[in-house]
Design a binder for these strands. Structure first.
Lengths: 146, 146
DNA sequence: TTGACTTATGCGTATATGCACTCATTATGC
DNA sequence: GCATAATGAGTGCATATACGCATAAGTCAA
């Protein structure tokens, strides 16, 4: 079965495994806040970049726009974000962080800090720093179409 | 909003982003084979470790057992794996790679090799090697419960 | 102005992910 | 042997992910 090397060296599979492990670690730490890391990242990114359309925010977050669109649902339902119709362009929808959303995210950041610190402890601070750098390269790299 | 440092340095978020990017890269390369990287990893792991129960395979793959259970459905439907009742312990279900599954996986490995090579090219071979090593540490690390 | 093209978003479908709870079966203690 | 505990797997629920298609709205040229 193995060919080139075997799939245990698959960059993608180990990336997915690590993402699962990290997600569970962070989600557990965030549980009390009622937010998942995936949701907290939406709120904090929105806070950082300011009101944006779905397409714009999806681009920033390196996320498919249809995925982001659906991920917004729980956040809107809980009143953490508001979705306003675009003024100039009526096709667009402006995503705005509400006061409630800002407050919840701020509280969650305490737990996030704990999770980040314990992550850095678990894998080693130097390793965590090197890892983040490499991961940003993976995100930014160009993958030619065949 | 930002607290400790800001969430743009969140180890988990960048991990998830990179996993998404890599998954799309590999899934595109594998499209012709009809398999996704998530599915190919099940088949190759099963091929490597031999017949296993759901719990056992889930453990090896660092995947929740209920997730694996559901992920098996398409593979079973397509006849790539067979699920046999356990002989000794009737609670268990042995997962077996079929000839068809083995054949499909073997073909897909060509495309996987292309994807892996182009990934290594995109991020740099040295970086890819260092990254895999770090990711394995993330997977294996111990994350104490608070 | 109107027709053609582009763009922003939604929806249908399918898979991926994991928690809480349940059921069936096995193991254990007495 | 039997009551109880432990274990393997399934289900319900909710969220995450992205592709293809559809729709609405803006842009631009003739």
């Amino acid at each position: 079965m193995p060919k080139r090397t075997d799939i245990h060296r698959c960059a993608c599979t180990v990336l997915r495994q690590a993402a699962r492990v990290a997600t569970q670690h962070f989600d557990k730490a965030l549980a009390a806040s009622g937010l998942r890391i995936s949701q907290l990242s939406v709120l904090t990114t929105l806070s950082y970049v300011g009101p944006k359309t779905i397409n714009e925010l999806a681009e920033v977050m390196v996320l498919d726009r249809t995925t982001l669109g659906r991920n917004l649902r729980p956040l809107q339902r809980e009143g953490f974000i508001a979705i306003e119709a675009g003024k100039d362009d009526r096709r667009t929808k402006k995503l705005v962080l509400t006061k409630k959303g800002s407050s919840v995210a701020l509280k969650a950041m305490d737990s996030w800090g704990d999770a980040q610190t314990s992550f850095e402890k678990a894998v080693g601070l130097e390793n965590a720093i090197a890892l983040s750098k490499l991961l940003r390269q993976v995100v930014k790299a160009d993958y030619p179409e065949k």
